[in-house]
Simulated scan of single mutants.
Amino acid sequence: MQTRNPILDEFAKLTTGAMGLAQAAGDEAKAAWRAQTDRFVAEMDLVRRDEFDVLKDEIAALRAELAELKAQKSNVKKTSSGPSTAAAPDADTAG
């Protein structure tokens, strides 16, 4: 048979209240820390990941286009730097 002890009941209530207060303080500390870090990151003017990925893709496309243009330029130089066929007579007709 259990008997109710008012001292133990009060101690249980006090302990429960202290645990609730500790949990609320922990939640408040987390919220304050999160707000502080968000403010710090905002002050650093960092780029978001999705913006970084878009810019990275644009740069890759520009590099590919630049490589293609360089290849076209080198092909044009190769064809124009060779001997001109219009200035030299053919070997069979020079006879």
Rank of each mutant, 00 (worst) to 15 (best):
Gln72Ser: 13
Gly17Asp: 14
Pro6Arg: 04
Ser80His: 04
Asp9Leu: 12
Thr85Val: 14
Pro6Phe: 06
Leu55Trp: 13
Ser81Arg: 15
Thr85Asn: 09
Ala87Leu: 14
Arg48Gln: 03
Asp90Thr: 09
Lys70Arg: 11
Thr37Gln: 02
Asp9Lys: 05
Gln23His: 08
Glu10Arg: 11
Asp27Pro: 00
Glu51Lys: 04
Asp90Lys: 11
Thr79Cys: 08
Thr3Pro: 01
Val54Phe: 12
Met44Ala: 09
Ala60Gln: 14
Ala12Arg: 11
Met44Asn: 03
Glu28Phe: 01
Ala60Ile: 12
Leu14Cys: 09
Asp27Ile: 01
Leu14Val: 08
Asp9Thr: 04
Ser81Gln: 15
Thr3His: 10
Gly95Tyr: 05
Val76Gly: 00
Asn75Ile: 04
Lys77Arg: 03
Ala71Cys: 01
Ala87Asp: 12
Ala91Glu: 13
Asn75Ser: 13
Glu28Ser: 02
Ala86Val: 01
Ala25Ser: 08
Thr3Phe: 09
Lys13Asn: 11
Phe40Met: 04
Phe52Val: 15
Ser84Phe: 00
Leu66Asp: 03
Thr85Phe: 10
Asp50Gly: 00
Ala35Gly: 15
Glu68Gln: 05
Lys78Leu: 06
Leu21Ala: 10
Ala18His: 03
Asp57Lys: 13
Asn75Asp: 10
Phe11Lys: 03
Ala64Asp: 06
Asp38Tyr: 09
Thr16Cys: 02
Ala88Ser: 08
Ser74Ala: 15
Gln72Arg: 13
Ile59Leu: 15
Ala31Asp: 10
Arg39Leu: 06
Ala29Val: 06
Leu14Ser: 11
Leu55Arg: 12
Gly26Val: 12
Ala22Tyr: 00
Leu21Ser: 06
Val54Cys: 12
Lys77Pro: 01
Asp9His: 11
Gly82Leu: 12
Glu51Met: 09
Glu58Asn: 01
Glu68Ala: 02
Ser74Leu: 13
Ala12Val: 06
Ala67Thr: 07
Asp57Arg: 15
Glu65Tyr: 00
Phe52Cys: 15
Asp57Ile: 14
Glu68Thr: 01
Phe11Glu: 03
Leu14Lys: 11
Leu69Val: 05
Ala25Thr: 10
Lys73Gln: 12
Gly26Gln: 15
Val47Lys: 11
Ala88Thr: 03
Ala35Trp: 13
Met44Trp: 03
Ala35Ile: 15
Pro83Trp: 08
Leu21Pro: 02
Arg63Ser: 08
Phe52Tyr: 15
Thr37Ala: 02
Ala22His: 00
Phe40Trp: 01
Pro6Val: 02
Pro6Trp: 05
Val47Cys: 07
Ala29Asp: 07
Gly17Leu: 14
Asp50Cys: 00
Gly20Ser: 05
Lys78Glu: 04
Ala87Gln: 11
Lys30Pro: 03
Asp57Met: 14
Ala31Trp: 08
Ala18Lys: 06
Leu21Thr: 07
Ile7Tyr: 12
Gly17Val: 13
Ser81Val: 14
Ala94Arg: 04
Asn5Cys: 07
Ala31Phe: 05
Asp53Ile: 14
Ala32Asp: 05
Lys70Pro: 04
Phe11Ser: 05
Leu62Trp: 01
Ala61Trp: 05
Asp53Gly: 11
Met1Asp: 01
Lys13Gln: 13
Gln36Tyr: 02
Leu21Phe: 06
Glu43Gln: 14
Ala61Ile: 09
Asp45Met: 04
Pro83Val: 07
Lys77Gly: 02
Val76Phe: 00
Ala91Ser: 12
Thr93Leu: 11
Thr85Met: 12
